[in-house]
Design a binder for these strands. Structure first.
Length: 428
DNA sequence: TCTGGGGTCCTAGGACCC
DNA sequence: TCTGGGGTCCTAGGACCC
């Protein structure tokens, strides 16, 4: 039996999440900012029409946004993550073969049915998510994931389709592909677009009709895959079970540049604490710890430094104090005084299951003794909030911490921030 | 004077994604 | 003054081995 891929994509997801609790913002321009209120990373359709680009630095647009009455939000990942989970649950209830691809997208494999039934199925998904969660979605269908992606962009672009477009049963598929610029094809980014343009390839249709061997030499394997997928040969399969994580990163830009090793130590300790609790949450242990540090690449007026160091631990671990100790040692070796640093971070690699560790005769059993402590720490922070208990090395004043001026409440994930309906007190 | 060839593994960096 | 963060895969090149 042949199948098609459907892609369910939440419209302007972060903006839709914010609007859910502020319905008066419907029809009005809204943007959501990245961490540290740095860039614009989500825009409502009204904001897009004002010419606000994806990824634009906020400080450059601030005056314009104010003048146009655009509502601004700092990002609230607790809220977005929770609503994403609710959307995905609905899809999984309705369809057996679902791949959660990102926070706002899911691929679904549908058996090919009668033309009308397919579209009805997609409309049903859209209606159910809208009714149960309140997030608007678009659905595109195609013989491959790449074609489904294109179909979704068509569904969003032309209101006449009511948010659902089936490219597989489109009478003139090639005419549609001719309207899609090649940089909109999944897997073709800015660098590849320049190379393709030099080869005379400008649209998705051009790429589809290109010589695969030539594209392979220009773009490598990913380019060839894009060509095959556009031709309807599925190369990227549905992954229902997420594969094991290979790395965990925690990094942030600072509120303002910092120069002292002491401040950097606090930041790095805090990032290690965050990432180590993620390790434990997923039952993993890390064998390698990378520490990195950099000045702002946008500041051409100051001396630049960017570097990283990696250490392989004597034994894979998820124990916060052990990791902090190793991380601070690496940071001290990496640190060069005199530079205004704007970002630091850490990464864990060499991940394995915590229960399947080769024991080392020559290493102290400190990490094992710390296990109940880590469990208690995680339980308390899960319940009372991430920073309730933290290591002293993470600091108290935290001059370096993120800027988040316009953050909405954690409406759905914190009892103290639930939205209020009226203010009546219950007596009795 | 003249210094192989092929395989594997690892790593850093590039490119891309959301 | 102010420009995100967290991921994956691929490739080229170096180290090493026989």
């Amino acid at each position: 039996m042949s199948v098609v891929f459907a892609l369910v994509d939440c419209n302007n997801f972060y903006v839709s999440c914010e609007r859910l609790f502020k319905p008066d913002l419907r029809g009005r321009p809204v943007v959501v900012l990245s961490n540290n209120d740095g860039c614009i990373i989500a825009r409502s359709n009204e904001a897009k029409k004002l010419g606000i680009g994806m990824g634009e630095p906020f400080f450059k647009k601030k005056a314009f946004l104010q003048q146009q009455g655009v509502q601004v939000f700092s990002s609230n990942y607790a809220l977005y993550g929770d609503l994403s989970h609710r959307v995905m649950s609905i899809l999984q209830q309705l369809e057996p073969e679902v791949e959660i691809y990102s926070i706002d997208e899911a691929f679904i494999r549908l058996p090919v049915q009668h033309d009308r039934t397919m579209t009805e199925c997609a409309l049903n998904l859209k209606e159910r998510v809208g009714r149960c969660v309140g997030i608007p979605v678009s659905v595109g269908m195609g013989r491959t994931k790449t074609l489904a992606k294109i179909a979704t962009s068509v569904a969003k672009e032309y209101p006449g389709y009511q948010g659902v477009f089936d490219l597989e049963r489109c009478p003139d598929q090639e005419a549609v592909l001719a309207t899609v610029k090649v940089n909109k094809v999944w897997g073709i980014g800015g660098r590849s677009t320049k190379k393709l343009n030099r080869q005379g390839v400008f649209t998705a249709l051009d790429l589809k009709n290109s010589d695969g061997r030539r594209i392979r030499t220009v773009l490598g394997l990913p380019g060839l895959r894009a060509v095959m997928e556009l031709r309807g040969e599925s190369c990227i399969h549905l992954e229902q079970c997420p594969s094991a994580r290979k790395s965990i990163v925690s990094s942030r830009s600072f509120r303002k540049p910092i120069t002292s090793l002491q401040d950097l130590k606090e930041a790095v300790s805090s990032y290690i604490s965050i990432a180590a609790s993620k390790l434990r949450d997923q039952g993993l242990a890390a064998a390698n710890l990378h520490v990195f540090l950099s000045t702002s690449r946008f500041r051409t007026d100051i001396p630049q430094f960017s570097g990283s160091r990696m250490i392989t631990l004597p034994q894979a671990t998820s124990c916060t104090p052990t990791l902090i100790k190793a991380g601070l040692r690496e940071l001290t070796a990496l640190y060069k005084p005199g530079y205004p640093y704007n970002k630091a971070g850490i990464m864990f690699t060499g991940l394995s299951h915590a229960t399947m560790q080769q024991q080392n005769l020559f290493i102290s059993a400190g990490d094992i003794r710390n296990k109940p402590l880590m469990e208690a720490l995680d339980r308390i922070n899960d319940y009372w909030g991430r920073d309730t208990l933290r290591y002293g090395s993470s600091g108290l004043a935290r001059e370096w911490s993120m800027k988040q001026v316009w953050k909405s409440p954690a409406y759905t994930t914190s009892w103290t921030e639930l939205p209020m309906v009226g203010t009546h007190q219950v007596k009795g």
